[in-house]
Design a protein around this nucleic acid. Structure first.
Lengths: 137, 137
DNA sequence: ATCTTTTTCTCCAGCTACTATAGCTATTAT
DNA sequence: ATAATAGCTATAGTAGCTGGAGAAAAAGAT
């Protein structure tokens, strides 16, 4: 049996976050000690590690809930889990695709400022004037 | 003079967002019509466009506040604005740097699942077992 | 002038995924 | 027995909006 602090150290998930996951229904309500403190089984640690790993990969709570649902039904087809992973991959790729033009634009804006005073600051001019941008965003 | 709807259409910023910016002090409290509706001057449109452009580039409200502060003082050195832009570039680069390993990991997880049922689903196994990951994240 | 439609007003709640505080109690170590 | 550490609940706050309710104003049609 683990205390919430031990579970936290074992998984790298902060204590308030563990309680939050319980509230959100990702973790089952833990058993309690005589003094009303949460006590966990080893399998709770596995489940929480799964959640942490998925969160680190950017899956939403909702998506994780679905994945956990699926893993509770070993006979179901694997395709559903695959779909969720592919969806997440799309989300991550979209984010990267949006950030890359921003990076380029900021490089340009930040690198080119050779003015001395705000009056002719390239950064501020660029922000004021969208036409100066080299790409869409 | 523009109504809030016209300003919204002119800049692509939604009406509640314009009111929110006013609340946050990014936009000055607008003049009002006899019937208490907001009326804007052309320079308000420029300011809001500036804000929108900066938001699109991922600057926080706080950073935008600083940039607007700076642009109100044309005699100050340009370096301050440059610093803010460079900081934002760092933030964007960090985000990309974090997302790329996730992309790789998700590609691997999503592509390799050849099992039929959840029992031997590669997606779920990978999430359960961090050791299967090829990179840190 | 009246009627209808559209726009705007304020206030407040909700979103994601936590994080932090306050005030209290339980457990553990000495 | 006492002190230190760890845990409890409940509530509010974070960023940056977004949406809804209910009322009032403005604009267009007759």
């Amino acid at each position: 049996m683990l205390t919430i602090g031990e579970l936290s150290r074992a998984t790298g998930v902060k204590i308030p976050t563990i309680r939050y996951y319980e509230q959100m229904g990702l973790m089952a309500a833990a058993e309690r000690s005589g003094g009303n403190q949460r006590r966990y089984e080893p399998q709770d640690r596995d489940r929480l590690s799964f959640i942490k790993h998925a969160r680190d990969l950017g899956f939403t709570i909702e998506a994780i809930r679905e994945l956990l649902e699926l893993s509770a039904h070993p006979e179901r087809p694997c395709a559903d889990a695959d779909t969720i992973a592919i969806r997440q991959l799309q989300i991550v790729r979209n984010k990267i695709a949006k950030l890359r033009p921003l990076e380029k634009e900021l490089e340009r804006i930040a690198a080119c400022c050779h003015g001395d005073s705000i009056r002719d600051c390239y950064v501020l001019q660029s922000l004021a004037n969208h036409d100066m941008c080299v790409s869409e965003h």
